[in-house]
């Protein structure tokens, strides 16, 4: 049977990209413990709206952990206290009556705040744009089974490919580094034969794009892996580095 909770929320409010922000306290009562975290915020927003206040802006879309749109730092941890889930899959039964919860946006220089808890993650697109794909035009493909790929290679590629692009890795990283995101993408194609022709070019260009977008260095804190909703391993960061060294040392100007 559902229980109800009374909570204190301390939420970051910021009117616009350049406006100053601050934490504001909200008391929310009668929260069913079967709600998801975002539904709890929905309820708060409905109440605020009814009271003539401006609702809190936060982003979400699929609400089932796959689109990567949602992203909140909850009590200092990106996506909140449960490992391996994005915050849209976090449920209120993990909280207790009387809890105080601090909710902040994903913080990183490369993710400017748009409003309240919503940030702009287009820097990720710029990284992908630099090489997160196999450059094959439509219509150029041979038969799908013409290229056998060992099952475990395909599985490893899939492990890396499950990244949902949420940006929690960046938000949780004390250095605002996008190494896990970039490493996962580079790794996916490193495992696959389709990725070989552009292997060096991809590593160099994506790493460069990562730097240019203003992300920090990776100091190997591994906080990113701990918050990643897909539990993507930092071994992908190491792989990115190998790919990068290899390319940087042996490339010819192309």
């Amino acid at each position: 049977m559902a229980k109800t909770l009374n909570l204190t929320l301390r939420i970051w409010r910021q009117a616009g990209p350049d406006a100053p922000g601050k934490l504001v306290d909200y008391e929310v009562d009668d929260i069913s413990d079967e709600m998801s975290f975002l539904e709890m915020l929905d309820v708060l927003n409905e109440r605020l709206t009814k009271q003539g206040q401006e609702p809190i802006e936060f982003d979400s879309d699929c609400r089932e952990g796959i689109c990567g749109t949602c992203g909140l730092t909850i009590d200092g941890v990106a996506h909140g206290p449960v490992a391996g889930v994005s915050c849209c899959q976090l449920h209120m039964r993990h909280y207790r009556d009387g809890d105080t919860i601090t909710i902040e946006p994903f913080r990183a220089a490369a993710f400017p705040i748009i409003k309240d808890l919503v940030v702009d993650r287009s820097a990720f697109d710029r990284i992908v744009q630099a090489g997160g794909y196999v450059g094959v035009n439509t219509g150029n493909a041979p038969d799908a089974n013409a290229l056998p790929i060992a099952k475990n290679q395909a599985d490893l590629a899939m492990d890396a490919a499950t990244c949902i692009g949420c940006g929690a890795c960046v938000a949780s990283c004390p250095n605002g580094s996008a190494a896990l995101f970039t490493g996962a993408k580079i790794s996916q194609y490193t495992f696959l034969p389709q990725g070989q022709p552009e292997r060096k070019r991809r590593a160099l260009r994506m790493a460069e794009a990562m730097d240019e977008a203003g992300f920090g260095n990776c100091s190997n804190h591994a906080e990113c892996e701990a918050v990643c909703p897909k539990s993507i391993s930092i071994s992908n960061i190491a792989r990115m580095r190998r790919e990068y060294f290899r390319a940087a040392l042996t490339r010819r100007d192309d």
């Binding site: 301390r10 490992a83 913080r107 990183a108 990283c173 580094s177 992300f215 920090g216 918050v227």
Partner: peptide
């Protein structure tokens, strides 16, 4: 790259 700190600090534990 991370000019503004979180007001509330946390550590995810687990794989971190």
């Amino acid at each position: 790259a991370r000019p503004v700190q979180y007001r509330k600090k946390g550590n995810a534990g687990g794989a971190s």
